[in-house]
């Protein structure tokens, strides 16, 4: 049997799964965490809009926007506990996205009688 050389360096698996992910995010796959956050936002935002449109015929875009951004904030805060997962400017962008979607949500309300 012929063993081919590995195409990448195997991670050190003796220190737990979080250490493996940490090695991966700081080394071979730098954009892992931002892509996870982007996937979380899109799966909630697009999925929510699509299912609501199918069920009711219309969709509340601003509400799904703020739900998706707050859903993205939770894993971003979890990633911030340990070093190596997320950078400060990425976390600030997630916070900024929350503020922007909140502005969209609160301004996207219909007129009342007063």
């Amino acid at each position: 049997m012929i063993f081919l050389a590995y195409l990448y360096d195997l991670p050190n698996a003796t220190e737990g799964v979080d250490a493996i992910v940490n090695q991966m995010t700081t080394g071979s796959f730098y954009w892992f965490v931002p892509m996870i956050l982007f996937f979380t936002f899109c799966i909630v935002f697009i999925g929510g809009i699509t299912r609501q449109r199918i069920r009711t015929g219309t969709a509340d875009y601003s509400a799904w926007g703020i739900i998706a951004s707050m859903t993205t904030l939770l894993p971003a805060l979890l990633f911030s506990v340990q070093a190596g997962f997320i950078r400060l400017d990425w976390l600030v962008i997630v916070i900024s996205l929350n503020i922007l979607t909140a502005f969209w949500f609160f301004m996207d309300k219909k007129v009342t009688e007063v």
């Binding site: 609160f106 301004m107 309300k109 007129v111 009342t112 009688e113 007063v114």
Partner: peptide, 20 residues
């Protein structure tokens, strides 16, 4: 989006509260 003055004020204050 058409908004009344009270609705607009509530919206702006809620944005500020959400930010904090």
């Amino acid at each position: 989006m058409e908004k009344s003055t009270i609705t607009l004020t509530i919206s702006l204050v809620m944005v500020a509260l959400f930010t904090i």
